[in-house]
Each structure stands twice: as structure tokens, then as C-alpha cells.
Nucleic acid binder design. Structure first.
Length: 491
RNA sequence: GCGCCAUUAGCUCAAUUGGCAGAGCACUUGACUCUUAAUCAAGGUGUUGAAGGUUCGAUUCCUUCAUGGCGCACCA
């Protein structure tokens, strides 16, 4: 990064030097007794206009505006919860201190002590008796009215975005609330929160390209996890009946408005249940969160009204395909036939694309654009789901669902495959695909098979993309709006 | 990886067909004892993303590169 120096920064550096010369510490160590802006505004709201209370308060924050009118002045100080106006008068502070106040820059952190009053226009204000500088700011904040709009600066320098754009901050406050609610929801149902390895020597749990790294002391290649799934199911084997993990996954793939290389995933496993029960868990959780945040279940996302009232529709993968293309794909077995259909439907694909990938493309073009209202898509073909259990009545279909809301996938769940022989066979097929160059195919995890050989109870598993859930509930069109520090290229 | 668009003062944005680079906020100085986008007066904002080319002359046209946005692809 180049050091950008401009006249405004130089000016502030001069002011900083001036402070040191005068023996004033521009970066004191602490400030005692600071109260919260929200509490102040609440506690004193019953004052009448022009009335001053006799209680002294301490407050501190970043000075974000100032209006000097000769011998008196108003400023706004912003803290973590909001802002409070301060009134600074020359007669209260004395000549020298008032001059010092006038030398403070917008952006500096300031601490004040004084009595609270309400101005003639009705704003709760601190009548400053004592004022100190708490931290000098050397950089100029963006414009007060238009704020910061440049997306590049907003993402790269999120700290400036958070100072200037209350809406951006609000998203992350909601994000925190949602995550808290998820934990409360699961804790109440006796789920145990666990942490499993993010660095894995065998990648599994999802079909995705991993990031690779190396452990020097062990001289061993490791991968950042693409999913915690196989470790969580080992815990199910171990008798932890209900577990969940809420943390990052890493996938070495393209970046888009819906993809960040590191993203947050919630995975839940419940013994003695299946994918049907996971649908209920999923629905109940998201409905509960939505109700808590909005007080209702109708939300708006990217111009669409979405109704999250339960029960959500359930439709099978092939049923949706047939509805939207008029073709019954469950009988399509040969690649030649799939290619002919794709040509007829005008769906593009590469010559070497596998048959089920072509089907996926057809699904994306014809079905996904219709999936605005919540729908559980059930019963996927087996070849797309190496870790899911087949249906009893049709071994080519697995007990799996994906939840779509607002045209994107939010959740994915299975009745977990617990037959070690069958699992080994399916992982073997994945391994063959990998050897043929399919970088996303999963590895054969011998220890996982060994765990299954000890016996895993029937189990339902559910994964929810947390960033996407937050996008939906904050009406954000890009995943970068809900991740504090999204991945960017080097400046 | 491909395509389209963008990049001008600290920030938000202008700039006629290729003809002296401009405004608001912020900043500096002065005035002002209830302002809140305070007001009034005066003042300087700059490697026009980078490098090269065409031209008497380039913010403007061309090439390459960088970064970002959107779309596609990859991908859930």
C-alpha cells in the first residue's frame, strides 16, 4: 500500500506535533465512567425544552460534526450506540480550553463531563464543563451529507463505512442478533455446539475445490475444510446425539454476489431423525428468527415480496423440472438424450460436461428463476449426493432437500447415509472421478468409513448458509454487504 | 477465466466536438451566545487510477495494465 499524504493529513500531523509540544497527550490511556448514548437519550427524554437537569454525566465518542457560533458551539459525538449533542461555551471552559476545543478536528475522539439539558428545539445535549481529547484522528472523514458510497473503499476500509453509514452497521448488528438467536434455538433443543478441525488432511463433506496449505513440523499437506460434515457425523457415532457447528468454511472458487471464499455455515446433526424432521427444524428456526426481527413473516427481497408463513411448499426435484420444462427427467439415463434435450431447451454446456451437470444447468435455467417463495426441493438423484441415504422405494433417489428462497439456495439436508459398505462404494466412485481430474470430487476418507463401521444411528443433517440467510433478512443483494471484511484483491 | 461499465480534490459529483480542470461538503482565516446539512465573508485544494501512443494540444481518442461494480462461466 502506498502512503497517501495530502495537505489535510499534513495539517493534522502538525496539530498533533503542536499538542506534544504543549505537553498534552493526544492518546490518553482511558476515560472513566462513560455512559451510553442510548441511555442518555432515554433517561433525559422527559426534560422539557430549555430545561437543564442537575445530574452530571460522562460521555465520550468521535466528534462527527461541529457548529461554532462565536462564543458557543454545538458538536455531535458518536459512540457505539448512537450520538449525543454537546454544547460547549467559552464562558464555561475559559478562553484557553475553548481555543483547544476549536483546534479539535472532526473525527477526533473526545471525552466530556457536564450536565444534561434539552435545547430550545428539543434535543438532549450535554452542557460541557470539562472536555478532553481522547484520540487524535489524522485522516479526514468522508462528506457528512452524501457519506461514503465508493464500494471499494466501503469494503476495503470497512471501518470508514461503519463510521459513516449507519445502514451498513445495522446489517452487522442484525447479523449478530441472528447468530445469537440460532444458538438459543438450538441450545433450547439440547444441541451441543462443537468445534471440529478447519485444517484437514482429507477433504470431505461437500463437492468443492479446497485451499491447500502445509504443516512444516509434520511435513504434511493440509486442506482448509470445505465442510465440517464428516467430523460432525463422527461425533454422532461417538454418541453425541445432537450437535451443531456454526463457523467458517473455505472454498477455492469464484467470487460473486453470492460467493465469498470463506463463508459461514451452520451444520446440524440430530440422531434418530431424518430429512423430514430437518425440514421442520429448518422452517421453525428461520420462521422464528424472521418473526423476532420483523414482527411478521412477509419480507421484501430485491423487489419481491416473500411470504415465509409456514408450512413451506415441498416439491421433488424431478417434479419441479417437469413443471417448468414439461419433460420427465427421471427416465433420462443416457448422456446423448440429455444433450439432445439441453440443445432443444437452448441450455449451453461444454462437450465434456457430465450428464448430471447438464441436468443441473437445466435446473438452474428453468427452475431456479421461479423459486422466489420458500420451497423445499426434495428427493435428488443419487449421483449428486454421495453422503445421503437412498429412499426405501427407489434406490436411485436420495432423501435430501435443498431450501430455496429468493432464487438462491439457503439450506441443504439429508437423511445421512450410515451404511459403511454403501458409503465406501460411493466414496470410491467419487475417488475415481477425482483421479479422472474432477477437482471437486470428494476423497475416500478411510477413518470416516471406520467410524461408520462402529455404527452410526439413523440421523438427519442440515446445513444452512448463514451469509445468505442474512442477505435475505437484510435485503442485501451482495454477500459483501453482510461480511465485514469480504475477500478483495491486493490494493 | 470471458464480456460490459467505471476510476477526476480527503468525500459526493461536474467538465460542450479534443482547447486554460470546476462545484458542494470538508479544510484555513475572520464575524457570530440555542445550532443541527448552522449562517455570512475571504482563501488554496489536483501526478484526472498507472504506463505508453495519436495530436500543435488528451479528463476526453487508441493500446496495455491495475482496481472495483454488474453479468456470464466456475461454483451451491
Amino acid at each position: 500500500m502506498t502512503e497517501d499524504i495530502n495537505s489535510l493529513i499534513l495539517q493534522r500531523k502538525d496539530k498533533l506535533a503542536e499538542l506534544y509540544e504543549k505537553g498534552i497527550n493526544p492518546f490518553p490511556h482511558k476515560f472513566e465512567g462513560k455512559c451510553k448514548s442510548v441511555d442518555l437519550n432515554e433517561e433525559f427524554k422527559s426534560l422539557s425544552n430549555g430545561e437543564e437537569s442537575d445530574r452530571q454525566v460522562s460521555f465520550a465518542g468521535r466528534m462527527i460534526s461541529r457548529r461554532i457560533m462565536g462564543k458557543v458551539s454545538f458538536s455531535h459525538l458518536k459512540d457505539g450506540w448512537g450520538k449525543v449533542q454537546i454544547y460547549v461555551g467559552k464562558n464555561d471552559l475559559g478562553e484557553e480550553n475553548y481555543l483547544f476545543y476549536k483546534r479539535i478536528d472532526i473525527g477526533d475522539f473526545v471525552g466530556v463531563k457536564g450536565k444534561v439539558f434539552k435545547t430550545r428545539t428539543g434535543e438532549i445535549t450535554i452542557h460541557v464543563e470539562k472536555l478532553i481529547l481522547l484520540a487524535k484522528s489524522l485522516r479526514v472523514l468522508p462528506e457528512k451529507w452524501h457519506g461514503l458510497k465508493d464500494t471499494e473503499i466501503r469494503y476495503r476500509q470497512r471501518y470508514v463505512d461503519l463510521i459513516m453509514n449507519d445502514k451498513a452497521k445495522e446489517i452487522f448488528i442484525i447479523r449478530s442478533r441472528i447468530i445469537k438467536m440460532i444458538r438459543q434455538f438450538l441450545d433450547k433443543r439440547d444441541f451441543l455446539e462443537v468445534e471440529t478441525p478447519m485444517m484437514q488432511s482429507v477433504v470431505g463433506g461437500a463437492t468443492a475445490k479446497p485451499f491447500g496449505t502445509h504443516h512444516n513440523a509434520l511435513n504434511m499437506d493440509l486442506f482448509l475444510r470445505v465442510a465440517p460434515e464428516l467430523y460432525l457425523k463422527r461425533l454422532i457415532v461417538g454418541g453425541m446425539e445432537r450437535v451443531y457447528e456454526l463457523n467458517k468454511n473455505f472454498r477455492n472458487e469464484g467470487i460473486s454476489t453470492r460467493h465469498n471464499p470463506e463463508f459461514t455455515m451452520l451444520e446440524i446433526y440430530q440422531s434418530y431423525s431424518d430429512y423430514n424432521e430437518m425440514m421442520e427444524v429448518c422452517e421453525e428456526m428461520i420462521v422464528g428468527i424472521t418473526r423476532e426481527i420483523f414482527g411478521k413473516l412477509e419480507i421484501e427481497y430485491k423487489g419481491n415480496k416473500i411470504d415465509l408463513s409456514p408450512p413451506w411448499k415441498r416439491k421433488s426435484f424431478f417434479e419441479l423440472l417437469q413443471e417448468n420444462t414439461g419433460i420427465d427427467f427421471s427416465t433420462v439415463k443416457e448422456k446423448k438424450e440429455m444433450m439432445d434435450i439441453a440443445d432443444k431447451l437452448n441450455v449451453k454446456y461444454e462437450r465434456e460436461t457430465k450428464s448430471h451437470k447438464i441436468l443441473d444447468h437445466i435446473f438452474d435455467s428453468f427452475v431456479v428463476p421461479k423459486l422466489v417463495q420458500p420451497v423445499f426441493i426434495t428427493d435428488y438423484p443419487k449421483y449428486l449426493s454421495p453422503l445421503a441415504k437412498s429412499r426405501e422405494d427407489n434406490s436411485e433417489i436420495v432423501e435430501r432437500f435443498e431450501l430455496f428462497i429468493g432464487n438462491f439456495e439457503l439450506a441443504n439436508a439429508y437423511s445421512e447415509l450410515n451404511d459403511p459398505i454403501e458409503q465406501k462404494k460411493r466414496m470410491g466412485e467419487q475417488m475415481k472421478a477425482k483421479q479422472k481430474g474432477d477437482q471437486e470430487a470428494q476423497m475416500l476418507d478411510d477413518d470416516y468409513i471406520r467410524a461408520l463401521e462402529y455404527g452410526m444411528p439413523p440421523c438427519g443433517g442440515l446445513g444452512i448458509g448463514i451469509d445468505r440467510l442474512i442477505m435475505l433478512l437484510t435485503n442485501s443483494s451482495s454477500i459483501r454487504e453482510v461480511i465485514l471484511f469480504p475477500q478483495m484483491k491486493k490494493e
